[in-house]
C-alpha cells in the first residue's frame, strides 16, 4: 500500500513492498545488500531497516503484467529526496482484487474512492 499512500490514498501499512526484477532464487543478492546497510533480516524476503521500518521484497506481483511492462508505465514519485517508480492506482487495485485476501479486499473501496476523487479534481 506504500505506493498507494504516496499517490494520495489515506491509508496505512506496516511494511513497504518493493518489486525486484530478479528471479526469486537470487534473493540472497538483495539480502546481502540489506545486510551491508545495517538491516536486520527477518525472512528470505523481509528485512527491518535501521530506522525500524519494514521492507518486503516481491519477485512477482499477481494480477498485473510482468515487471518490464509495468515499470515502463509506472508513476514516478519524488519521495524522501529520491525518485521512485510506483504502480499506478488502477494497477494496485487490479492486483489487490486478484489476490483477494481479506486485507487486500478491505483496501478496494479506499482505492476506488481515491481514484474517483482524483478524476473529479482533474475535472473529469
Amino acid at each position: 500500500m506504500s505506493g498507494a499512500i504516496l499517490q494520495g490514498v489515506p491509508a496505512t501499512t506496516l511494511d513497504t513492498d518493493i518489486w525486484i526484477d530478479l528471479p526469486s532464487r537470487q534473493y540472497m543478492r538483495v539480502l546481502n545488500l540489506c545486510r551491508r546497510m545495517g538491516a536486520q533480516l527477518r525472512a528470505n524476503t523481509l528485512v527491518d531497516l535501521s530506522d525500524g521500518s519494514t521492507v518486503n521484497f516481491l519477485y512477482e506481483v499477481h494480477g498485473v503484467r510482468g515487471f518490464r511492462y509495468e515499470y515502463q508505465r509506472a508513476k514516478k514519485v519524488k519521495w524522501l529526496n529520491t525518485e521512485v517508480a510506483v504502480l499506478p492506482l488502477p494497477r494496485i487495485y487490479a492486483s489487490k482484487k486478484f489476490v483477494g485476501r481479506p486485507k487486500d479486499l478491505a483496501h478496494l473501496p479506499l482505492l476506488e474512492q481515491t481514484m474517483k476523487l482524483q478524476g473529479r479534481l482533474r475535472g473529469r
Partner: peptide, 16 residues
C-alpha cells in the same frame, strides 16, 4: 481525502 490529496508524497508519508 482532501488532506491526503492536497499533500505532497512526502507529506502523505508523514501522515501515515
Amino acid at each position: 481525502f482532501a488532506r491526503s490529496l492536497a499533500a505532497t508524497p512526502d507529506e502523505r508519508w508523514r501522515l501515515h
